[in-house]
């Protein structure tokens, strides 16, 4: 009698364990899928992949030319030695929301943590789950080549003390769901302002000139505020959505600037709904007159 009862219990337990395992595998797969989407939306691939046709995705090494020196993006595949394979969840969160590496050093703002700080923890952990589902690639990248007037990594600490405020995105309850999604995508995940907003002499974004255009890495980055002449005020929300999908401006020209990479590795992978949310947000921000810079 006892034997039979315990047998049944074992079967029940085994069944429950199998079900839970199946569920957690399913949940993991869902998280990885969501993380893959967010990895596109956060533009990780664009900067963490070298600019050559046979470059390995996310293995870093892309050179970023700034007035403060040449920065080389790191390998973010889960390789223990050269990538982020040894990082814990909290390491990852601290890097993206606070700009601090697992060893406690401060990142230069070429890594856009000033934008990423607004990303929700669960979204960041989904991105991490996706990155950790990829094959680790052992690849060392070059060290940053800082300008002579940047004394050391200590400068990053000083910059942060002056310019960086950590904090998650707070939805605006007076605005709709689409606007809030667009604001989250533009300001935080997509970090559009990192290129489209002009910087002051110490490289901090000028908030009063949000998305009003700039010069970045030798490129003239356009004003994307709704200003009718200097910005994209004449573009409809549909035009913006279409541009983000295929790279064509309403006059029939196809972009070939860095934006072509952003479209290839980020916005063309988003849902139409998300691209329309970006458009709705862009149409709502203050017009910026470029000559007022």
């Amino acid at each position: 009698m006892i034997n039979i009862a315990s047998k049944i219990n074992y079967e029940k337990i085994l069944g429950a364990v199998l079900l839970m395992t199946a569920f957690s595998v399913f949940a993991d797969q869902e998280t990885i899928k969501r993380g893959a989407y967010l990895t596109y939306a956060a533009g990780c691939i664009t900067c963490h992949t070298e600019q050559s046709d046979d470059a390995m995705s996310l293995t870093g090494g892309r050179a970023m030319k700034t007035p403060f020196g040449m920065f080389y993006t790191p390998n973010i595949t889960p390789d223990n030695e050269t990538g982020i394979g040894a990082w814990s969840d909290d390491d990852f969160i601290r890097a993206l929301q606070h700009g601090v590496s697992p060893t406690g050093t401060h990142y230069f703002p070429s890594f856009p943590y000033a934008s990423y700080t607004g990303i929700a923890r669960q979204d960041l952990l989904a991105i991490k789950a996706y990155l950790f589902s990829l094959a680790p690639v052992n690849k060392e990248v070059g060290k940053h080549d800082l300008a002579w007037f940047i004394p050391s990594g200590l400068a990053a600490w000083g910059w942060k003390a002056l310019n960086f405020k950590p904090g998650r995105f707070q939805p605006d309850s007076t605005k709709g769901e689409s606007w809030n999604r667009g604001a989250y995508l533009v300001r935080h995940l997509g970090h559009c302002g990192e290129c489209h907003t002009a910087r002051n002499v110490i490289g901090a974004l000028r908030r009063e000139a949000e998305l009003g255009g700039s010069n970045f890495g030798g490129e003239t980055v356009p004003n994307i505020t709704p200003h009718p002449v200097d910005g994209i005020g004449r573009w409809s929300e549909n035009d913006i959505e279409y541009f983000l999908e295929i790279g064509m401006s309403p006059d029939g020209d196809f972009t070939g600037s860095s934006m072509a990479d952003v479209i290839d590795d980020n916005t063309s992978h988003l849902t139409r709904k998300d691209r329309l949310a970006i458009a709705a947000y862009l149409k709502s921000i203050p017009e910026f007159q470029s000559s007022s810079q």
Binding site: F254, T255, S257, A260, I263
Partner: peptide, 10 residues
């Protein structure tokens, strides 16, 4: 886009 990316000034 491919051509503009490679062969046109940015």
């Amino acid at each position: 886009r491919g051509c503009h990316d490679q062969y046109r000034v940015k």
